[in-house]
Amino acid sequence: MPGLSANVKTFFWKNNPVTCQILGLCSALAVTTQVRNALVMSLALIFVTMGSNLTVSLVRNLTPGRIRMIVEVLLIATFVIIFDQILKARFYDISKELGPYVGLIITNCIVMGRAEAFAIQNRPIPSIFDGFGNAFGYGFVLMAVATFREVLGSGRFWKVQILPTAYEPCLTLVLAPGAFIGLGLLVWIGKAIAPTSEGGN
């Protein structure tokens, strides 16, 4: 069974959930206007994916086959709501900036995908590692896109002005189009460095 570091290595580049498996795109674009928000979303995903992978794996021998997807959604939703409540209580302003996108983690294909593809058939400890590895790879993509968008789009990093004020920020990057373009460029780089077999338009 691959250990923690092996999981991280695999899902970082070779089989990155976003650039390679094309999962979890929605939040990758929505919350990457600021590095701080991207970090919180990454942590949310690590928490939820590890939690849901663990619980799905724990009950895998009890779950009737017919309802297994509903059970997965239920467990995922529970962890998402827990994270959302914690965020609202302790980090209120971040919670407002992330808005509905925390709730949308429930439909984030990465979480559901790992639960269905791995956790339901494997033991708890490997499932936790798998969850961590995937979410970590996802977090990396988020941070990369967010750095690109926030620095070039507003001259700031973590809300701190780091580019000289003479720099005219490229506002498009923090608006919707910049998100798509930023992620598209990252996918390009990712696939150029570690080519996958997928081709064609």
Partner: peptide, 21 residues
Amino acid sequence: ILSFVCAASLTVVSSVAKPHF
């Protein structure tokens, strides 16, 4: 059973978090 467990944990978390919220 599962629904009950999930709902119960959420209710607990929610009531703890609500005053802070």
